[in-house]
Design a protein around this nucleic acid. Structure first.
Length: 293
DNA sequence: AGGCAGGTGGCCA
DNA sequence: TGGCCACCTGCC
């Protein structure tokens, strides 16, 4: 691969190798893997495939693997939310008064929230119920390979919801979706039946979008918050999953609070960037060595 | 070998 | 409201 195929997509990026990995492959997106041969992250988002790697001077380098290289480049910038000043976002989190938050920030400087296509985020997180990251990645890969549009070189986009709707529940089950298949099929039918529905939800306020999302079968508060955090600009969305429950109980002494109360605590304590804070808590907790009883 | 995993929905008191 | 349980599937 010729050197000049690489373009600087973000000069002097705020990423470390670790936080780039954690951002791309730490549980918010499921279509990235490290390509050992090339020494770069290879990923697919929207209708684009590309490579990303950090240069020694911490420039972030990009190489398109799909057609329409110019559009691929600008779309990847949007996907990375490159225009956001992430360092000042970090500074605005309540680390001054919250020692655990401070520790998480110090461990994951440069971590950020990606901007995935809304429909993709919703689909991926509908797959995520009681699954671990490697298995969610398999489901997404199966969905893309079987139902998504080809991008060349055995690369496939995630299917649109209309494409999902064309599959039967049985077919979806054969893609290792398990009991999620039924709800994903029903949700796909609802979305396919109203061509503006998903766009309307995407453009609605946080509260309105969340109420609309939880109407879909198989979408509760947690999945709705994930779709909104990773697929829209609503960074106040605060997904409460098992990891976050653990942190809030242990570090914030909130034993006995239910998930709704925990979500409310998160949005109040961490503020308008609660979802960004959540990602630090999540990454820290997820990468802690397991303690054996 | 059985229990559990980035949940949700249904049923029961 | 609050607690309990089934639900696919793969991995420890």
């Amino acid at each position: 691969m010729a050197k000049n195929d690489w373009q600087v997509i973000e000069p002097a990026s705020h990423f470390s190798p670790n936080t780039l990995a954690e951002t791309l492959d730490g549980g918010q997106a499921f279509r990235w893997k490290f390509n050992e041969e090339v020494g770069a992250w290879q990923g697919i988002f929207d209708r684009f495939a590309c490579l990303l790697k950090l240069d020694t001077n911490s420039d972030l380098l990009f190489q398109s693997l799909s057609k329409n290289k110019a559009k691929s480049f600008s779309s990847c910038k949007a996907f990375l939310r490159s225009s956001i000043d992430w360092a000042s976002h970090e500074d605005s989190l309540p680390w001054r008064s919250d020692t655990h938050m401070k520790q998480c920030l110090e461990s994951f400087r440069g971590l950020r929230i990606l901007k995935q296509p809304f429909g993709e985020a919703l689909l991926a997180f509908m797959c995520s119920a009681t699954k671990q990251i490697p298995q969610i990645k398999v489901m997404c890969q199966n969905l893309a390979q079987t139902l998504g549009s080809p991008l060349g070189k055995n690369l496939h986009a995630m299917p649109t919801w209309e494409q999902v709707a064309e599959a039967s529940e049985t077919q979806l089950r054969s893609l290792a979706l398990g009991f999620r298949a039924k709800n994903i099929k029903k949700t796909a039918d609802l979305i396919a039946a109203d061509s503006t529905l998903l766009k309307q939800i995407e453009q609605a306020s946080y509260e309105d979008a969340k109420s609309a999302l939880v109407e879909f079968p198989g979408v509760g508060e947690k999945i709705a918050d994930c779709a909104l955090l990773f697929g829209t600009d609503h960074m106040q969305a605060f997904p409460v999953d098992t990891w976050i429950i653990k942190v809030l109980e242990k570090r914030y002494e909130l034993e006995g609070w239910d998930n709704k109360q925990l979500a409310q605590f998160g949005r109040i304590h961490f503020g308008p960037l609660a979802g960004f804070a959540q990602q630090f808590l999540f990454s820290w907790e997820r990468t802690q060595p397991k303690v054996r009883a």
